[in-house]
Amino acid sequence: MPPSPSPSPTPDTPRPTYASLLAEGTAVPTEGWDFSWFQGRATEARPSWGYAVSLAGRLAGARAALDLDTGGGEVLDFALERAVRRPVLTVAAEGWPPNVAKATALLRPRGVAVVAVAEDRPLPFADGTFDLVSSRHPVRPRWTEIARVLEPGGTYFAQHVGPRSAFELVEYFLGPQPDAVRGARHPDRERADAEAAGLEVVELRAERLRMEFHDIAAVVHFLRKVVWMVPGFTVEAYEPRLRALHERIASEGPFVAHSTRHLVEARRPAP
């Protein structure tokens, strides 16, 4: 989401109705990872490490690069545009068909091959193909496959969603979650899984970041876009909670939550 809000409406500007906000949040397309629609409606602080810019530097030093869970290709496109040199081979993998189409349209002009890969299938690449594998917010890191397609000495560089990310919003709709759910995606667990796959974790940094939702349209669009937050979310199923949250935002101000992110750098040891 955008890092800072737009100016608030002036006192003379009529406020949108609850019904119009629901309709707007429901109508916005959800393909890709472009969050520009949220400008002025929701904000999220950015991690201090600047993942996309850092990825540009990694791409400049790579020979063959693979970007996993590329979404609509927006982050990879940003990084390639800023890389002082591009890899000889760059491949992007994505599992959701609407995102595959969007990423192909965006990345093909840059010479990137976009491959459709289902989450439950092995990566369709030979062992040791890439010296750089990257991912921003993978659905689930596939450590064994990452280690397999990396060449000895190759690097996995990624930004992951951490534990309890936006859980204030999740638990508003779903109620208190079991400890196992709340602790999922913990960086310590991911370190152990990466090492079990044969990777050496070089760096692991975590941050907790403030999020603000300024209207109910932003909440609706966010939950439609980030579907694993409230599985099966529909406006109809959660209408009473949405109405109550709309009234709360109108009377108290933005709904505040916190995202968690961690930066991961792991290496496949050389012989």
Rank of each mutant, 00 (worst) to 15 (best):
A60S: 14
V28P: 13
R208V: 14
V115C: 09
V114D: 07
R208L: 09
M229R: 08
H262S: 14
V202F: 08
P240L: 12
R121E: 15
R140I: 13
M229N: 13
E252G: 05
L107F: 05
D77I: 08
P163K: 01
A194R: 00
L76Q: 12
W49Q: 04
E239I: 00
P29T: 07
G175R: 03
R164I: 09
T144Q: 14
E171P: 00
A126M: 12
L76V: 07
D179A: 13
P11W: 02
S134L: 01
L204F: 03
A244K: 08
V219P: 01
G71S: 00
A197K: 04
A42F: 02
V256L: 12
V133W: 05
L209Q: 10
A266G: 00
V256H: 05
F213C: 00
H160C: 07
D179R: 10
D179M: 11
V53R: 13
A197G: 08
E203W: 04
Q39C: 06
S135R: 13
R136K: 14
A83F: 01
T260W: 07
R267M: 11
D120I: 07
A79Y: 09
A196P: 05
P124E: 02
F130E: 03
A19T: 11
R268F: 02
R261E: 12
V235Q: 09
P97R: 12
A113L: 15
P2N: 04
E171N: 01
D188F: 07
A180S: 13
F173P: 03
P97S: 14
A103C: 01
T30G: 03
M1S: 09
V28A: 12
G183D: 15
R191M: 00
R243C: 06
A42W: 05
F35G: 15
R185M: 14
S20Q: 15
V112E: 06
P2F: 08
V264Y: 07
